[in-house]
């Protein structure tokens, strides 16, 4: 029974992906069939080629890799540093400052896009990828998450011992803290990468059609005179493949690592 429900859920989760590949591998006429065949056709590569002809998709992929890669690196680094400080270091104002971080979780910052756009236009950053990178360098969720994990995962004695041996703070962080919190950092990295790769509202506002991220390019693909679903869904399939690979290769280890931590903690 449990397995039956879980299988139904996972199949339901996978179906839209398969469906979009299905439509992308045929031509749009299949959509008019009442009971469409569930086997892929032979047109996927042709449809994919049309995606690259219609929008600057290579450029979009490159931009998305740069944006998501940079944002992931900085978010993991800054969140882990801040998490370490909040969890294991003593300093004046620590608790109120951490409360402030928690409170900002409830602030819908997405609603500040208009002044943010005005500021980017002022700096001359509009239409450049740095305008998408900079606002996302570190997040409250990241800091909160790393702090919660570090509290349990890193014993005080270890930090003290390293200090006794004459390590500077940053060396304690690098050689003692970082190895201990690696599972949580990896988990945060995976989520940050996916969130950044899939971000839409802000890139749509600040980037143009010549220099898009993947999501913005997809939207341009869809906004023709009429929607050619074989073309558009070939685009969504192409956009999902890189992240699906990251997820399948790393997902198992990362989810396993973090759940072990939760059991111990």
């Amino acid at each position: 029974m449990v397995y039956g429900l879980l299988i139904a859920f996972v199949l339901g989760s996978a179906f839209p992906f398969y469906w979009s590949f299905l439509v992308a591998s045929r031509d749009s006429s299949m959509l008019t069939d009442t009971v469409p065949s569930l086997l892929p056709g032979a047109n996927f590569l042709a449809n994919a080629q049309r995606v690259f002809d219609s929008v600057p998709f290579w450029k979009a992929l490159g931009n998305s890799v740069i944006v998501a890669g940079t944002v992931t690196l900085t978010t993991v680094l800054f969140s882990t540093l801040a998490g370490f400080a909040f969890a294991k270091l003593r300093f004046r104002g620590r608790d109120p400052l951490f409360l402030f971080v928690v409170a900002t979780l409830a602030v819908p910052t997405q609603l500040g896009v208009i002044p943010l756009y005005l500021a980017m236009a002022e700096f001359g950053w509009a239409n450049g990828v740095q305008a998408v990178i900079v606002p996302n360098l570190v997040t409250a969720v990241g800091v909160f998450w790393m702090r919660q994990y570090t509290v349990d995962a890193l014993p005080f004695e270890l930090v003290e011992a390293a200090r006794m041996d004459g390590c500077s703070m940053i060396r304690v962080f690098w050689h003692v803290c970082l190895p201990a919190v690696r599972p949580a950092a990896a988990f945060l990295g995976m989520f940050t990468f996916m969130t950044s790769w899939n971000d839409f509202l802000w890139p749509l506002i600040v980037l143009n059609a010549e220099n898009p991220t993947v999501q913005v390019a997809l939207e341009k693909l869809q906004s023709g005179y009429y929607v050619d679903y074989s073309l558009v869904l070939a685009g969504t399939t192409l956009a999902t493949i890189p992240i699906l690979i990251v997820f399948v290769v790393l997902g198992r280890q990362i989810v396993a690592g973090i759940m072990q931590g939760a059991v111990k903690g």
């Binding site: 996972v10 839209p16 996916m194 899939n198 969504t236 699906l244 997820f247």
Partner: peptide, 12 residues
């Protein structure tokens, strides 16, 4: 498996 949908972009 249950996390799979999170991979999908909202645009797609």
């Amino acid at each position: 498996g249950v996390l799979l949908p999170y991979v999908a972009s909202l645009v797609a």
